[in-house]
Design a protein around this nucleic acid. Sequence first.
RNA 1: GGAGAGCUGGCCGAGUGGUCGAAGGCGCAGCACUGGAAAUGCUGUAUAGGGGCAACUCUAUCGAGGGUUCGAAUCCCUCGCUCUCCGCCA
Length: 425
Amino acid sequence: MLDQRLVRENPDVISSQLGRRGKTVDLTRLHLMAKQQRQLEEERSILQAEGNRVGKDVGHRIKSGSDPKGDEIADLRHQGNVIKQKVAVLEDEEKKLNAQLRDQLLTFPNLPSPHCPDGKDESDNVEVRRWGTPREETGLEEHWQIAERLKLFESERSARIAQSRFVTLFGQGARLERALINFMLDLHTSKGYSEVLPPVLVNTASLTGSGQLPKFAEESFRCADDDLWLTPTAEVPVTSFHRDEIIPADQLPLRYAAYSPCFRREAGSYGRDTRGLIRLHQFNKVELYWFVHPDHSEAAHQQITADAESVLQALKLPYRVLDLCTGDLGFSAQRTYDLEVWLPGAGAFREISSCSICGDFQARRSAIRTKEGKHTKLVHTLNGSGLAVGRTMAALLETGQQPDGSVLLPEVLIPYVGSERLQPQ
RNA sequence: GGAGAGCUGGCCGAGUGGUCGAAGGCGCAGCACUGGAAAUGCUGUAUAGGGGCAACUCUAUCGAGGGUUCGAAUCCCUCGCUCUCCGCCA
């Protein structure tokens, strides 16, 4: 959420920064609302101060012997009533205005970081670095072809169970998925991340706190009978894990590695990535999440990205890092590095992790602060996939495929899978 | 699902209409004492939004919302949540 004070005092900064995202916004109305809100609050509190004085006065006078039924007290009561009515009117107005203002504020995306490259869409993203040597020979299979041969998962029957875009893993496939989750969590916890296994049903306040609501309701599955939604990413429950808290400064940074299944409706992606593990309504993901002191968030962004990369490096999966341009930035992000893994079968880089710094955007929505001296201060939050498990499996299958039809696994996975390769069954 | 109890500051806990943002204790921080520490003493210690932007000060907040009143943590109504017992269940 944008800072209300900034809206009130410096709306031009907001419009110019949102302009970098390719949004032309007219903040005139919002600016007016914010100013009016302040004015109403001021008027009201002056009146209330007066009312408080009258109330206290009555008490004093009765205690020191004034006749509670006398004119003197009656007069004060009358004054009190007049003030009360005025306050009620103002409060009413104020409440409406506040609600409107908040509703509005919640719909604005985060302001891009000054370091974020300007651009209009994904074609303007900036490649920062590459790691590893991609396999580029021809005739390689795509992951879903390999999976079919090795009987790792089943799509058609899964449509019977649920819908299209669901998958049932079994045998070596299920084993590999589980292995990857364990491997990723082990890797991150060995570097000091705290492991988290959060609820995957989350309430509206949680989705609002991390920025999925109110704007992106159509992207999440919802339980109509309850105030609950299926979480689209562990980022949501982990953010709200500390909602409405003041985290002591000496506990920062808090670093979490959270495994969760993720649920997304993928509205508007009909026909895209219909085969395999790339785009599903339900997928597994290990998410990295940091709560940091605002002074340290830039460095943290480099680190969380490096931590996500370390998974790809350990799995020997070639990838590249993109610095997303302002036009391609997610709603809550100030700046984002996307990791794209090389899929030799598809012959393309595919997003496998998105590492974002959100500044105080989510912290303000979620009221997560730290204490600095006698003042509180919003923390900064960061998140990054470490990694999306299904896409990791896809990359492993395509990268490790052998002429004999088996798939060679990277060494680090052997203890988790129990063998060095997947064989046709 | 049925029955009951409760929700007060970081924690415990007092407070049933009047100067209460809230006694007391614990915890924490600073200072004093000490060779150092313990013990002790003193002082300070909620959040949000305003104004001075330093001391300080105004407003709101005692689960949430509404009501009664000049005045509510304290009375009334509605809702939420937590806990205990019974039933059911992985």
